[in-house]
Nucleic acid binder design. Structure first.
Lengths: 154, 154
DNA sequence: TATTGTTATACTCTATAACTATA
DNA sequence: TATAGTTATAGAGTATAACAATA
């Protein structure tokens, strides 16, 4: 992640925290022989159930061709499998295997635990205000992006 | 980025914000014909001055071989150049070109502006508490990672 | 005619290993 | 002998374009 070298403002602090989160997660995935892109696809299946490759491409914001490659990799490592689509013979239904499901359950539990552990030692008022602050930042960010896109479209 | 589908906790909120930031930045880089990895290298040069490729490899946490490829790309687009190292004939000194420097100055200004714009409408107390909250989260995160590494090393 | 997924091709980022030139 | 950087090779993620099968 870029822009984490100085921390003169809240943006750098935010990026620093998520850079550390990301690096930690990458190490964990590497230990399990997983990659970020494939895990992301599994995460979508875990939370949304079986899906066609076009649906996965939309969810991941990548091309259908890319999903073909990702599912190939997941099938080769017994993490997901292609099954016939119940009604459309052109499409396939991608499912998690038992192994893939088990891994995602573990990762989901770890994710939830991390969410609590990160707040250790913070009082409720601080947590509440931090959440409000982050939500305001997100709202500002989305407004800025929308304004920027609008200006560009002129 | 993973794990941004639900936002039941502050971790998901945090990841959601930085996911949006990252996506916005990727679009900007793409418009300028830049990539994340090459821009990161330029960012290191911009803030740290000319460096050898080994130093860049350490700063970016990649292999020296990878830096060769990144600098090749930056040289081909007139964003950086290799110069002889003043004292070590084995090494090269990588510099930003005028064009590279100009782009980094623009990006740095945009980054600073974004840092302020994200706080629009927030009162000082909220900002201060949000910063405290994020710093506590970062401290917890670093402690958790250290504990985890220690447990693994046993 | 439109959609789903694949084959073909290419570029970027990344790694390891072997090698050259220099220290 | 150790270090800086490159050549060689490989894998993963990503894209566009052309194509087959099906809707």
């Amino acid at each position: 992640m870029l822009f984490t070298m100085s921390e003169s403002n809240i943006l750098d602090l935010l990026l620093s925290v998520t850079h550390t989160l990301q690096a930690d997660q990458d190490r964990e995935l590497d230990r399990r022989g997983l990659t970020t892109a494939r895990t992301h696809l599994m995460w979508v299946l875990f939370h949304g159930g079986p899906a066609t490759q076009v649906q996965l491409a939309e969810a991941l914001a990548v091309t259908p061709r890319n999903v073909t490659a990702l599912v190939d990799g997941l099938e080769a490592t017994d993490l997901a499998r292609r099954e016939p689509h119940p009604t459309d013979r052109r499409a396939v239904h991608v499912h998690l295997t038992e192994r893939g499901l088990s891994i995602m359950e573990t990762m989901n539990a770890e994710h939830t635990a991390l969410g609590s552990d990160l707040l250790a030692g913070l009082d409720e008022a601080t947590v509440a205000t931090t959440i409000r602050g982050l939500e305001a930042i997100r709202a500002n960010l989305e407004r800025l992006i929308a304004e920027h896109e609008a200006a560009r479209a002129e």
